[in-house]
Design a protein around this nucleic acid. Sequence first.
RNA 1: CGGGGCGUAGCGUAGCCCGGUUAUCGCGCCUGCUUUGGGAGCAGGAGGUCGCAAGUUCGAAUCUUGCCGCCCCGACCA
Length: 492
Amino acid sequence: MSKEIVSRKEDYSQWYNDLIIKGGLADYTAVRGCMVIKPYGFALWENMRDVLDKMFKDTGHQNAYFPLFVPKSLFEKEEENAEGFAKECAIVTHYRLKLNPEKKGSLMVDPESKLEEELIIRPTSEAIIWNTYKGWIQSYRDLPLLINQWANVVRWEMRTRLFLRTAEFLWQEGHTAHSTADEAIAETKQMLEVYATFAEKYMAMPVIKGVKSPNERFAGAVDTYCIEALMQDGKALQAGTSHFLGQNFAKAFDVKFSDRENKLDYVWATSWGVSTRLIGALVMAHSDDDGLVLPPKLAPIQVVIIPIFKGDEQKMAIDEKVSHLVKELKKAGIKIKYDDSENSRPGWKFAEYELKGVPVRIGIGARDLANNVVEVARRDTKEKKNYSMDGLSESIISLLDDIQSNIYNKASTFRAEHITKADNWNEFVQLLDEKTGFISAHWDGSGETEEKIKELTKATIRCIPINNEQEEGKCILTGNPSTQRVLFARAY
RNA sequence: CGGGGCGUAGCGUAGCCCGGUUAUCGCGCCUGCUUUGGGAGCAGGAGGUCGCAAGUUCGAAUCUUGCCGCCCCGACCA
């Protein structure tokens, strides 16, 4: 019973923490603001990573790796970017410790070891990468340069939250260089599509594709494209970003190329990334009061088999039958676990795998052997049904597909119900407070108005949706003329 | 850095206001038996610098002061 989780309605934050800690994904550590990702959580990340990595490679990208440390002089070259991250950097100033003469058994920073130049632990890698690209790019023949890196980064946030905002997190960051603005913009949009496809097809999480307002734009970008997801508490979550960087970094790092006419020009850049935050999004998008609900396409365990038996004789008969089933299901490409551990009883296992979000559970006992059936329980609806053992792999595959689309549809319905139009200020505030979710409203396009709305309501412009419908209207706050609605929400 | 709260076994906690035997209870853990189709039952057992330091006192988990750490709310943010 110690593993019971707090209900979502009672305490949303506690519910979220319980899901992650008791579901076995991650835990806090001794390090401030950092977490340890446990094997089950990491297996989930690996599955996500594998899918994304393949999508990147299918769109012509290659992986590489750049240093963790960024010398301060490089870091500060692109001013806007440096300023944007200045307040959340971890900095290496020394390289050696020594015994503390005043306190036996303790160490102190050796003042003699002060670095001539401080090293910034990357909060993002544009600086170190563009400094490297300078040496790689001379001609249009070297372009486009399409590189991705899987790495960890550090952002010294004031307040942290498992997966959503930790001091250190894992991510991928793509950094590309192009000979024309159009090509770079096309790349930015292409990667946004990749992210959206991943979120919807694999995470079963509907997202809105859009462009950030100038206030919310990535420091150093010309345009920031994003995918925005909606969580079950009605708050929005930025799930991925793709930036068109213009020539800002090329100019800051002096990266020029000769075009076909032998004219020198700065290259055009993009960067794009998603992080372990996606795990937080996944957790919040689908889970319920019984625990995690993981989409079959990403679940580390898709099917768990639990034997129910009295005595060794029954156990052996079940083992024998299950070994054939496991072989059959594995052959069909299903990630399966047979939990025949005798340390815990069936009821405990049922609850445990529900907590862990395993999409399908198969129960098998002496009774089932006699009838040539298994009991199949699906995590999303908690429905239980007997399935014939004959052709089990086919029926399980179609069940997994069904679960995948069911949880997508559920999230999709929820989101559709939580995008609401507001046409005046009172309505806007009331919707934010009572209905939550995305509010579609007119905005006069000014940064001050956006800032003011944020101050008054804590809502920010999540994005201006791509291919947004143009419509005459009046700004929700100022009444100034507006040409389109944008999406507001309170966000993580 | 501002406002609030908390630190007692691996986890969650009672006791603190009003100082007094051997620090409470639940989960978990260990041993044994019985169990096993929705988080098992019984019996026995192990496990504690009561966050740290100083002070008051015959006596401190409890009172005082200082420090440290954590959580929540705000500013910041993928």
